[in-house]
Design a protein around this nucleic acid. Sequence first.
DNA 1: ATAAACATACCGACTGGTCGGTATGTTTCT
DNA 2: AGAAACATACCGACCAGTCGGTATGTTTAT
Lengths: 195, 195
Amino acid sequence: MPQQRSEETRAHLLDAAVRRFAISGYNAASVDEICAEAGVSKGAFYHHFPSKQAVFLALLDGWLKTIDAGLESMRQASVPETFVEMTRLLPAIFAAADERLPMFLEFWLQASRDEKIWEATIAPYRHYQEYFARLVSNGIAEGSLKPDTDPQAAAQVILSLAVGLFLQGVLDPHGADWQKVGEESMKILMNGLAK
Amino acid sequence: MPQQRSEETRAHLLDAAVRRFAISGYNAASVDEICAEAGVSKGAFYHHFPSKQAVFLALLDGWLKTIDAGLESMRQASVPETFVEMTRLLPAIFAAADERLPMFLEFWLQASRDEKIWEATIAPYRHYQEYFARLVSNGIAEGSLKPDTDPQAAAQVILSLAVGLFLQGVLDPHGADWQKVGEESMKILMNGLAK
DNA sequence: ATAAACATACCGACTGGTCGGTATGTTTCT
DNA sequence: AGAAACATACCGACCAGTCGGTATGTTTAT
């Protein structure tokens, strides 16, 4: 019977890793720490994962899939109004991050210094920008958006705003009424893009 | 006349620290590394600074002063148009950061986990938000801005956009035409806020 | 049926290396 | 002389990853 615990142990390790990474950060959280929290030995850790980075990448992969699933279900819900989609998508994209965003950011920083890791982990995020750019293009074609809007740039602005909002919101949770700021930012964005 | 080359050595250490922090990051850059780049010994380092963190705080302090100076000179230039001030201020605020932003972010992440460090280092940034909020309030009073705009929230949006833009621009320098994105974001922002 | 042969899951002591910081010099200026 | 301005050697803690070993399975040959 203990033989069958394999998957369970792996799950425990992943779960413990999330918590420790979220609390201490990717670098500060030691493998020993994670093992202690998972209640297993270091041997078990290295039996399931080849390295510390591998656990993080496994977690990251899971979040990316969650986000993609959210994006897909949103696409299938087929709300015709592009702006409504936009405003609903921004929270959805970051809902899978929440308190885990700081560790993701920490990893982002390290990845930005290592091109191989960057390409393998962060670069895939770029397709969200393409999605927003398409929404903007549709809006222009429909005539609901200002015709001189650059879709690529606008998409970048939307994503930048989202990143900035959540970055400040997560790292400075007591600094502002983020609910209100979120609504206000959407209002400004929509006013600025609408024809 | 100060004894020996004390001030010069200190300057060399600060200069070396900036470069190493920018290249390797705050944590990864070791004190030995910084000393080697500065061409002095570890003893010299700990003669001038009580700790590794102290060097970083000294650098941070310098940047904050640079930013404040830029803000002040901008205020004295007394451009009456609030929006013009705004669009000019955003680059000014981050001009002093540029390639040093990643290490600042790394420190930000660590500070967010330690309230004392946070209050001493990051919290003072909040006064920029007050400044933007005042600009928005003025705009509403003048009648050039939508009257239902929440100044605090709008200021937060402006700062969030700036943070998001520069974060993406610095960390993903090849990802977009950041000049164009910057202009586009200002256009959208101004359109969204103007009455 | 069962024992031998093998595979998987896990343990925990240990290693090699790193790094912030310190203790103890030595030199140089006043 | 004596204090400031360094230099050098070293300490102790930490930490990712390794490795020999064990316990608990599963498969295969008889």
